[in-house]
Design a protein around this nucleic acid. Structure first.
Length: 435
RNA sequence: GCCGCGGUAGUAUAGCCCGGCUAUUAUGCGGGCCUGUCGAGCCCGUGACCCGGGUUCAAAUCCCGGCCGCGGCGCCA
């Protein structure tokens, strides 16, 4: 869209516009000063373009403005598009007007142009500048595309997008700790998952999904955990765990395929190819995984968690980047997880693992009231706290299943970044509350 | 939270083991030269040892504590 600031984006300046007078606005990305000739690389949200200033071809006014411009200053340029084989992409802009809208201080606390690297910690502290770097712009664009495809793929299967409450009443579930908030003088908490509400919604709308934040006040201090993260959740009535696994792998497949097709430049910037998603993805039962790990001399037995070190081994044994572990022991899964009818020791559950990282987790859910109450009791949980949930099991809760996918972890896979903090715009972890 | 490693100019680093010399280099920034650069080049300059305590004639360097970071693990509906 044309505005008073610009009528074309940097990326769209091509030789076909030659001779046209255009207006562009953006940030000073690089300055190469050869004396009589100065090259300003201008960057906007779309990309970069070269602005060429010849000393004896422009006014004193333009020359002064160009000479006072600092890196990352915001400038507006009116100029003529020139085709020139010596210019990057074969085009450049010769300024008629060069206006500094906002002069940036120097030196910058972070190099945006990519000449000098910075630690993750520095990058997160100087995040706004960090996000202007080409790699981060690509990461964020790929994330945007992933969200678009996820929504399209789920809607194509009849899912509708919903929102569940993020301020909840009770610190119900054992395990993960919640962040308390003061809610009109009463104690409340930030939701750690949409789980119970999405189940109730599936009992009305049949197929629902939500893409929303969740909060966990955990001690977790790793490259894979955040105190605040985006969770992609689905819940579907009249499906079981195998059905929703198919939906999950289809979604993952579609996202990877689309990004490979449509984000070629971004992947090139990141110098990365996301892993193949062969359908169906390999599936390995928990008991089988334990057996393999024991064969490799690892000290695990039925009932233990399959942790990061174990998942690293499994990925290499299975020789795949992406795989499902299925049918976990019932007692190490959440209370609402449905045990198998023929063997209640194991459950209708699964994790989707990339290399050694759990991307998604799901299951068939219990839909009978008595069984649900039993599941709570057997875990030593307070049934009273769940009345708001259990109540509805008297009024037609269908068989249902679902999963939750950690969006940042998924984005790590799509962009080859090493940490969820890196791919989250403004990450919140145990120590970091700003920016 | 545990274990390991680390903290040096705005940024990224060398030096630390084996204490003493003008604390290295790149990038940025300032100045100079330069009309086709594209990580421009060349010359000159600028700017730093996390905080506190200890050992020592002398500490960036050795020791102790703290804070912060990174990696692994744990915790983790």
């Amino acid at each position: 869209m044309e505005t008073k600031f610009k009528n074309v984006r940097c990326k769209d300046i091509t030789p076909s516009l030659k001779g046209k007078i255009i207006t562009i606005s953006g940030w000073v990305h690089q300055i190469r000063d050869l004396g009589g000739k100065k090259f300003i690389v201008l960057r906007d949200g779309s990309g970069i373009v070269q602005v060429t200033v010849s000393k004896n071809e422009v006014s004193r006014e333009i020359l002064d403005a160009v000479e006072s411009a600092t890196l990352e200053s915001v400038v507006q340029i009116r100029g003529v598009v020139k085709e020139d084989p010596r210019a990057p992409r074969g085009v450049e802009v010769a300024p008629i007007e060069f206006k500094i809208i906002n002069l940036a201080r120097k030196p910058l606390p972070l190099d945006v142009s990519g000449k000098v690297s910075a630690d993750t910690d520095t990058r997160l502290r100087e995040r706004v500048l960090d996000l202007r770097r080409a790699e981060m712009m690509s990461v964020v664009r790929i994330g945007d595309k992933a969200l678009k495809v996820i929504r399209e793929a789920l809607r194509a299967e009849g899912f509708i997008e919903v929102f569940t409450p993020k301020i909840i009443a009770t610190a119900t579930e054992g395990g993960a700790s919640l962040f308390p908030v003061i809610y009109f003088g009463r104690e409340a908490f930030l939701a750690q998952s949409p789980q119970l509400y999405k189940e109730l919604l599936a009992a009305s709308f049949e197929r629902v999904f939500e893409i929303a934040p969740a909060w966990r006040a955990e001690e977790s201090d790793t490259p894979y955990h955040l105190a605040e993260f985006i969770s992609v959740d689905i819940e579907a009535a009249f499906m079981d765990y195998e059905d929703v696994m198919k939906i999950l792998e289809k979604v993952v497949y579609e996202v990877v395929r689309t990004i490979r097709d449509e984000n070629i430049d971004d992947l090139r910037t990141l110098n990365y190819d996301p892993p193949e998603v062969p359908l169906p993805l390999p599936r390995i039962r928990y008991v089988e995984a334990i057996r393999i790990l024991q064969e490799r001399g690892m000290n695990v037995k039925f009932g233990d968690d399959i942790g990061t070190p174990e998942q690293r081994v499994l990925a290499s044994v299975l020789n795949t980047q992406l795989y499902f572990i299925t049918e976990f022991p019932t007692r190490i899964r959440a209370f609402y997880t449905k045990p198998k009818d023929e063997d209640s020791e194991v459950s209708e559950s699964f994790d989707l693992v990339w290399k050694f990282l759990e991307l998604a987790s799901g299951s068939s859910r219990i839909y009978e009231k008595d069984q649900l109450i039993e599941a709570l009791k057997s875990r030593g949980m307070n049934v009273e706290n769940f009345q708001f949930f259990i109540k509805w099991f008297d009024y037609g809760i269908p068989p249902h299943a679902g999963w939750g996918l950690g969006f940042a972890r998924f984005l790590m896979m799509l962009t080859n970044r090493g940490s969820v903090k890196e791919v989250t715009l403004f990450p919140r972890d145990k120590k970091r509350l700003t920016p």
